[in-house]
Design a protein around this nucleic acid. Structure first.
Length: 285
DNA sequence: TTGTGTTTTATTGCCTCC
DNA sequence: GGAGGCAATAAAACACAA
């Protein structure tokens, strides 16, 4: 036997050999489901209305007579009760379900406290006409069922949380993509701007000739055709890039204050810029 | 009626606590 | 070491569709 434990569970549900069933039937009363139950479900001693079966072992004929009919109902209705009784007492020991009332009573008791102290177990067993061991087993199985239900509940809760998080993640992902697209567009704009500026710089380098006149050092920017457009400062990123690209130190354009390119180089077109050109490029952005 | 899936009752073996 | 709890499992009882 496991753990040295010895269970004397012989014939737990059957009526003892000396029991007179008719006396038993008269002396026992099954409370209807509408009857109020003891708040703590520890049946009152003595003439408690919840003393289902006295101290005798419970007899359930569910299954023997079929359906969910209780023991008493079965015998009230059967005309050949003796034969059934005989059949019952001679059948081999079988598992028998508790009656609806017994289960209800145990359920209420379980709601109050799902653990079973020895005293309570004995009391319940006495009042329900069960072996204490049966009461203990019922509580044990009931706890297992409760745990399973609880796990299912927890799973549902976690599943709901997961779904919410998943939805939030999806929204954030879309937002991220949108912002990424925005950054790409702005970057493209800046690259194009830089490219155009480089082209202009190349043209000017090609067309440049030694200055004929001394440079006016007091106004270094006055003759630069492409000064940064200071009006467009709405976006920080572009603004920073603009600052970097258009720092005076990085200006690559030659001074064109004295436009002496009356004869453009043969290798290229007329790269002489006019003020309108500056306006054109500036407005392009 | 019968096959099959589910529920309930009970057992077994292991573990923890006192 | 005994008592009691729990997980796993067996087996009877039950429900239900075909």
């Amino acid at each position: 036997m496991a753990g040295g434990r010895v269970f004397s569970c012989n014939n737990t549900n059957s009526v003892g050999g000396s029991n007179n069933l008719s006396v038993l039937l008269q002396s026992q009363r099954v409370p209807s489901s509408s009857e109020p139950m003891d708040p703590l479900f520890i049946p009152r001693p003595g003439s408690s209305p919840y003393s289902f079966f006295g101290t005798r072992s419970m007899v359930s004929f569910e299954g023997v007579h079929g359906g969910n009919r209780s023991f008493f109902r079965s015998f009230d209705e059967e005309e050949n009760g003796d034969e059934d009784l005989d059949e019952y007492f001679h059948q081999p020991e079988k598992k028998r379900r508790l009656t609806v009332d017994q289960v209800q009573f145990l359920e209420k008791s379980f709601e109050v406290e799902n653990k079973l102290e020895p005293e309570r177990k004995t009391q319940l067993a006495k009042e329900l006409g069960l072996q204490p061991r049966q009461v203990a087993i019922w509580f044990q199985n009931r706890r297992a069922r409760w745990k399973t239900k609880q796990l299912e509940k927890d799973y549902d809760t976690l599943q709901a949380s997961f779904n919410t998080l998943k939805d939030d993640y999806g929204i954030l992902l879309k937002e991220k993509d949108k912002l990424k697209q925005e950054v790409l567009q702005l970057t493209d704009k800046l690259v194009m701007k830089e490219k155009n500026n480089s082209e202009l710089s190349d043209v000017n380098t090609v067309c440049q000739e030694p200055p004929q006149k001394p440079v006016d050092s007091d106004s270094p920017h006055s003759s630069y055709p492409f000064e940064p457009d200071q009006s467009d400062t709405s976006q920080d990123e572009e603004d920073n890039l603009s600052k970097a690209l258009f720092q005076p130190s990085s200006y690559i354009f030659p001074k064109l204050e004295d436009n002496d390119y009356s004869d453009p180089p043969a290798s290229s077109c007329s790269y002489g810029f006019h003020v309108e050109d500056h306006a054109f490029w500036s407005s392009a952005y």
